[in-house]
Design a protein around this nucleic acid. Sequence first.
DNA 1: CTAAAAGTATACTGACCGGTGAGGTTACTT
DNA 2: AAGTAACCTCACCGGTCAGTATACTTTTAG
Lengths: 199, 199
Amino acid sequence: MSEPQEQLTPAAERILEAASDLFYWHGIRAVGMEAIAKAAGVTKKTIFDRFGSKDTLIVEYLRRRDRRWRRRMLEVLDQVSEEHPEHKLLATFDALSAWVRDENPRGCAFINAYSEIGDREHPAMDVITGQKQWLIGLLRELADAAGARDPEALTSKLMVLHEGITVMNSIQLSADPIGAGRDAAVTVIRAELPDASAF
Amino acid sequence: MSEPQEQLTPAAERILEAASDLFYWHGIRAVGMEAIAKAAGVTKKTIFDRFGSKDTLIVEYLRRRDRRWRRRMLEVLDQVSEEHPEHKLLATFDALSAWVRDENPRGCAFINAYSEIGDREHPAMDVITGQKQWLIGLLRELADAAGARDPEALTSKLMVLHEGITVMNSIQLSADPIGAGRDAAVTVIRAELPDASAF
DNA sequence: CTAAAAGTATACTGACCGGTGAGGTTACTT
DNA sequence: AAGTAACCTCACCGGTCAGTATACTTTTAG
């Protein structure tokens, strides 16, 4: 039913890798196909033979990034005991810290793409909202499991913190947005749990 | 010394107004000069006669928006007594709520521009960082005045919330990011003040 | 009243954009 | 031996972009 792991040809792999790098660092519209071809050591023809259009290449870029982000997040959460969902809730911020530090210094690729793509009918829109919805769903489940007083409100608050951390980290104007955001998350989670003993 | 209120010609006024609208809603790179001319009921020549280049027009767009944002923020803060800096701290979120609701539904214009402009030498960069620095400075002063235990940390936390609210509001995937963010701010501010009686 | 400033209309330049067409080479299957 | 997928070269297309040129008209302020 679903595409399992679309094996890419060597050239296609290089193309997607180069495009991802350029798109993320310079913006989607700022990067031309010629530049991608050059960076990938490939001709423009090959790009269009493999991906068909710039729009599909954009979609693949976001899809792959989303996959990597989810994997990283789940890896971190797996190291936290199932018996402490409130610790998992906080651990999402540890995953975010690592992600933002290593691979996300220029802000959220999905939010950036969202603001760059004017057209709400663009095929990338589903990937973008999908990425956010996934995290919302994840936080919501953990908030429920942790027995939060108002799981939906807690989810919204933590989402605000997640996105705020990503943005503030990217502009590098605040001392330690990652640490500050995580500290705020601790305070917020603790305030939302009836059992004050957490952490 | 400084340009006080650069009186614009009627056409220039319409140009800047039209450009601001288009830039904000469709993105800077997505909007061409021809489209701006059409929307302003003006010829392209007039645009270049008045503004010289697209880059300067972008800078003016951001400058004007920054001015309006600061004015709105200060108006709200002025209605809060000087004797309660912690209430002013919270009031920045009321100002943000109104701003985000009426004039900022597509995310922060400055962050959007930041992600769209690849070139870190672009003249708009100063306006962008200036806008953020201003809010950081404002929050920092209020945090000091409120006697926060760690004013710098509190500033960072509140900045994270400000930016997170703006982003989450723009993607419209979370129930009430404005309310949730404000609630989180209350919790965070209270936790940072030695005097627990606040609010 | 008059001259400068501000505006109109239209046509243009040169660079770049996403995307295509025609054809050739290599390497692995069948 | 034939077929095929995955590349390559390179010239080319229509379209759009920021910005300019020329020439004429309107607004405005001393």
